[in-house]
Amino acid sequence: MKSAVTTVITAADAAGRFPNLSDFEAVKASFARAAARMQAAEKLAAGIDNVTADALNAVYKGGKYDQTTRDKCARDIHHYLRLINYCLVVGGTGPLDEWGIAGIREVFRTLGIPTTAYIEAFAYIRSRVCVPRDMDQQAADEFKALLDYVINALS
């Protein structure tokens, strides 16, 4: 799975060399960001149900979407937020890529699911992250970068 460390090791293995100083620098750089990432992951884990409910209300209150899809939409938003929690922990987009994004276009197209609801929900969550009420600036940056990544993948 793609994370900060495994990316380095994959490159070293492809070249058949031992980890060298620039590899160590890359690993160190990812560990330097780890505290912020883990703070974001921890806050998200603690508030995931509230964040989901909040985003869901914002999306469905306009009456643009069929209310019968509400539960399924909640489940999916929760699912993506959980994958973002994982990405924050590993420091790479591996969990989202492998478990959330691979094949997602095909699934949505086949089932006729409008992705705009999800995009609205994640954009709403992105706009609602408040520094320093929710988390530190750096943690919020890491979290928002991953929300953007999901939004891009769904657009």
Binding site: M1, A46, N85, V89, V90
Partner: peptide, 22 residues
């Protein structure tokens, strides 16, 4: 290939839960 972080993530995913404080 996993590292210490993705190992934790894989076991959390098997349970379908977020990685919390513990």
């Amino acid at each position: 290939m996993l590292d210490a972080f993705s190992r934790a993530v894989v076991s959390a995913d098997a349970k379908g839960v977020c990685l919390g404080s513990a």
